[in-house]
C-alpha cells in the first residue's frame, strides 16, 4: 500500500511533463466547439443532443492517451524492475489507474463546463452530466488502463486498443447518456454498477496481462 503513493506521484509527474494531460481536455473542447457548426444554430436541437454528444466525446477522449499509459514503462523495463522488488503487477495497475484518473477525470469534469456552455445546455442537464461523468470517468480510466495492459507488447497497439475498448465501453455509454433523459435514477445506478465492475476487474485482468505479456 505504501508503494502506491510514490508510483502515483511518478506517473502524475511524467504525465504533467509530457503535457499528455491536456490532450483529452483539448479534444473535448474541440468537439464541443465543432458540433454547433455541423448541426446548425438551432438552440433546442443542440440542448437536446448536446449531452449525448459530450458523452461520446468524453469516451473518445479517454482513448487518446492509451499509448502512453503502460507501453513506455513496459518497454523501459520499469514494470520488471518494480516486479522484482516485490511490487505486484496488480499494485502497479492500481497505481496507474488512480494516477490516470486524477490526471484525466477532474480536468475533464472542469472542461465540461465551458463545453456545455458552447452547446447552451440547460443547468439540470449540466449537473446530470457532471454527476454521470464523475461516476463514469473512473470506469473510462479503468478501461483505458485495461486495454493498454492487454496491448502493451503489440505493434500498432494504438489502433487495436481503440477497437478493443469501444465495445467494452458501450454499456457505459448507454447508461451514461441514459441518465440525461431519465427521471427515475435507474440509469445512474446502472452506470455506477458498470463503473464499479470495470474498476474492480482492471487490476486483476491488467496485472495478469502484464505477467502474460512478459518476454
Amino acid at each position: 500500500m505504501n508503494m502506491l503513493i510514490p508510483l502515483i506521484a511518478r506517473d502524475l509527474a511524467n504525465g504533467w511533463r509530457s503535457a499528455g494531460l491536456w490532450l483529452p481536455v483539448a479534444f473535448l473542447l474541440l468537439v464541443a466547439s465543432l458540433y454547433p457548426f455541423a448541426l446548425g444554430p438551432d438552440a433546442g436541437l443542440l440542448a437536446r443532443t448536446g449531452g449525448g454528444m459530450l458523452w461520446i466525446a468524453a469516451l473518445l477522449a479517454s482513448l487518446l492517451p492509451i499509448d502512453r499509459l503502460i507501453a513506455p514503462d513496459r518497454d523501459a523495463g520499469v514494470i520488471d524492475q518494480l516486479s522484482l522488488r516485490g511490487v505486484s503487477e496488480e499494485t502497479q495497475v492500481i497505481a496507474k489507474l488512480i494516477a490516470h484518473w486524477i490526471g484525466f477525470g477532474p480536468p475533464l469534469l472542469l472542461a465540461l463546463l465551458p463545453a456545455a456552455a458552447l452547446l447552451k445546455l440547460p443547468a439540470p442537464t449540466i449537473w446530470t452530466l457532471e454527476a454521470g461523468l464523475l461516476i463514469g470517468t473512473p470506469a473510462l480510466a479503468a478501461l483505458s488502463i485495461l486495454v493498454a495492459s492487454l496491448t502493451a507488447g503489440l505493434r500498432s497497439s494504438g489502433a487495436l486498443a481503440g477497437l478493443l475498448a469501444l465495445p467494452l465501453a458501450v454499456p457505459l455509454l448507454i447508461f451514461g447518456a441514459g441518465t440525461l433523459g431519465d427521471g427515475s435514477g435507474a440509469a445512474m445506478k446502472f452506470l455506477g454498477a458498470t463503473s464499479l465492475l470495470l474498476v474492480a476487474i482492471t487490476p486483476v485482468a491488467g496485472g495478469a496481462a502484464l505477467r502474460a505479456g512478459r518476454e
Binding site: R10, D75, G77, D80, Q81, L84
Partner: peptide, 26 residues
C-alpha cells in the same frame, strides 16, 4: 535481488539523480 539488463528503466526527462532517487525510495 537487483538486476540490470539492457533496459534503462529511468525517466528520460528527469535529472539522473532524481530518476535514481525514485528507485532508491522504492
Amino acid at each position: 535481488l537487483a538486476l540490470t539488463d539492457e533496459r534503462l528503466a529511468l525517466d528520460m526527462e528527469r535529472p539522473m539523480a532524481d530518476a535514481l532517487a525514485f528507485w532508491a525510495m522504492i
